[in-house]
Design a protein around this nucleic acid. Sequence first.
DNA 1: TTACAAACATACATGACTGTATGTAAACTG
DNA 2: CAGTTTACATACAGTCATGTATGTTTGTAA
Lengths: 227, 227
Amino acid sequence: MARKRHEDALATREQLLDAAERVFRRRGVGHTSLAEVADEAGVTRGAIYWHFKDKADLFQALVQRVEMPINAAMEEMSRASAADPLGAVRSLAVHALQGLAGCRRTQAVFDVVFLRCEYTEELAPVRARQLEDRKDCLRRCEAAFEQAIAKRQLPADTDARVAAQGLYAFVTGLMRTWVETPGRFDLGAVAPPLVDVFIAGLKTDPPRRAPAPRKPAAKRVRRPQAA
Amino acid sequence: MARKRHEDALATREQLLDAAERVFRRRGVGHTSLAEVADEAGVTRGAIYWHFKDKADLFQALVQRVEMPINAAMEEMSRASAADPLGAVRSLAVHALQGLAGCRRTQAVFDVVFLRCEYTEELAPVRARQLEDRKDCLRRCEAAFEQAIAKRQLPADTDARVAAQGLYAFVTGLMRTWVETPGRFDLGAVAPPLVDVFIAGLKTDPPRRAPAPRKPAAKRVRRPQAA
DNA sequence: TTACAAACATACATGACTGTATGTAAACTG
DNA sequence: CAGTTTACATACAGTCATGTATGTTTGTAA
């Protein structure tokens, strides 16, 4: 094939990512040869090796295509959490779930990420990035919960960290179970009430911080509340 | 090597499963060759092909080794749910989480199941079994929640099915996030309070069954949403 | 004691898949 | 308009995994 213009090359790149999405989903990342991806995209392996270093690089690019909107939503939460922290967290969780339910590409990528790939050494960079994203999300949620405590939206001795870990696990668990069997329930519909279950539970019976260890005759120290 | 007695052969089988657990965890199921498993077990591939049909069969046997305790716990819940359904569900969830936190073998298998394998065609039987287990768990939990409604432990219009799906997603989400980073938090310790958050939320603000539609054609508008 | 079959080990044929090296035609540059 | 670079296609070498076929040794039953 002949040389193309720059924009055509970018289109080829997108086609490769689209093709990889489909093939990875069908056959799994590890079981997919780059030849299959090339076939699906209507090119040869040469094109893949031109645009990407190897399969891991291709996969990473694939994931990054859908990460942006979620990160934007997290920024939004951090901004909105000054006024109504609990509402901001709720909004983020619901938005993330409905974003998955409503976007085909996100569904495909999450399907691959959750079910069709092995996190071994060759995908270490992808995995490291995921864990970094998770850490960031947990940090933000924990901060929001701390603000919620300060604003008396949550009990004073709520363990914000554990609460954040719980919410994260809940949301990602819903994502995974839904991706496993998309037909079984309407994620977009159940997301708001289910997130509300967790929020309501936090209000009435949250995980409590371990009380300050009371040694005999040691004075009790109140931890300063973050503002 | 020579022939062994029956019990020696069973021991070899267990060694193979142990070895597979370790190698699968390090390298991923798809990236592992049976030669590697054989090496790890100190035998040759011949032994593997004697005891198992192929890699998928080996993997399936590996998973089945840890399924028993969980299934037993589910039976137990169904039994106990007559007297205190909500307590039985809570107990099952906590028990499952602490069972993971406390058992090395379970941790290894869940690690492989969640992170080191691709659910493609060759693992279809394993996957089908998992989905069957999940369905069974959901059925039992839903039934327990129904009983909880009958006993006024939950509001009358609680949607038991959605509640069960939520709890299942929550528990498996916790399992997965913990397996991803076992050092980050103490699963055994946070399990009870976090499960209680969900239960408490169900009591005060559960997902409600859709009220009987007064007008037949009240159509929901679905908005396509990016991420 | 023989005969069979269990429980593996060994050897082989086959078929990918990967990475790279090289070819090539068109687009771009000066 | 000639040279250069881009954007691929093609060809090649080497490795590696799989499944099976076959060999080997030894419990065990008759």
